[in-house]
């Protein structure tokens, strides 16, 4: 049999959790393959999810590779496929192919302080690496999470965040004032400037909307972080996930295969086409 990368493996949805409601809803899906297979992934990799009859979407795997019982995805409702996913129920069948992309180079980060900076749904790719680092806390230095969203209702993983607060420093923010909010009010980059994480022996991992990433990088540079210490993920429209369909490229890089994780040092050298 020839290996065919385009054929997804079937999985059922175990559990669906509503993270965020309203006009830009986010749900978290835990899924399990129907048959045993060799799907193993690294933090920061993605999978192409299928809703048969609707199509495919590239989604970051938000669970840690340390978790073996399920694969987790947190999905913002956008168009055809993601809307169909939002209508699904536990027990429903989806397709999964992958994993795709390079993932975070966490092997190189042993012994370092890790600062995670996320905005909105951008916590999804961070979640995998954050939980992996938490699971092997002795291998890393201090862990810090700086995370924000438009309103307190737009923050994902809220229950889990309460748990994590007991173990590491977590700095949350919302864009505009709310009556019972005791943490930072303002944009994520401003919170970064406010909390002044030290660049000493540190790596930052930042994911979120492009505009947020841009200003977070600026804030980090002002704090003395070097380009090599800043990691981010790039999102370009994708179809194949394997460097053939030709739409996700930035210069000669195919984000689906050579990305989505880039250090700022690498990304800076590429044309601004993302």
């Amino acid at each position: 049999m020839v290996h065919n990368d385009y054929i997804p493996k079937l999985a059922h949805i175990l559990e669906i959790k509503e993270e965020v409601g309203g006009a830009r809803p986010i749900k978290t899906f835990r899924t399990q393959f129907q048959n045993k297979n060799d799907f193993s992934f690294r933090c920061g990799q993605c999978a192409m999810l299928s809703v048969f009859g609707k199509g495919e979407s590239m989604i970051s795997i938000s669970s840690s590779p340390l978790v073996k019982d399920y694969l987790q995805f947190s999905i913002l409702k956008m168009g055809r496929v993601t809307s169909a996913l939002h209508e699904m129920q536990p027990g429903d069948i989806i397709g999964i192919r992958g994993p795709y992309g390079n993932g975070f180079p966490i092997k190189d980060w042993k012994g370092k302080n890790l600062i995670f900076i996320g905005g909105g749904i951008g916590l999804a790719p961070i979640w995998s690496v954050l939980n992996t680092a938490l699971g092997k806390k002795e291998e890393y230095g201090d862990l810090t999470l700086i995370y924000g969203a438009r309103t307190s209702k737009d923050l994902v993983f809220r229950e889990e965040l309460e748990e994590i607060k007991k173990k590491i420093a977590v700095h949350l923010s919302i864009d505009v004032e709310e009556s019972d909010w005791n943490e930072f009010v303002g944009f994520v980059p401003q919170n970064v400037t406010d909390k002044k994480p030290s660049p000493n022996n540190a790596i930052t991992i930042t994911c979120g909307p492009p505009i947020m990433i841009k200003f977070v990088i600026k804030a980090l540079e002002d704090l003395g972080f070097k380009d090599e210490q800043i990691y981010t993920t790039v999102e370009n429209k994708m179809k194949c996930g394997i460097g053939k369909c030709g739409r996700c490229n930035i210069g000669s890089h195919y984000v689906c295969k050579d990305g989505p994780v880039y250090s700022w040092a690498e990304l800076k050298k590429l044309p601004q086409e993302y």
Partner: peptide, 18 residues
């Protein structure tokens, strides 16, 4: 360059081609 889409001949019960 190519696109990948689902062509559906029945939406419920779902039947079609990718």
């Amino acid at each position: 360059c190519f696109d990948i889409n689902d062509e559906v001949s029945s939406s419920s019960p779902v039947k079609g081609k990718r």
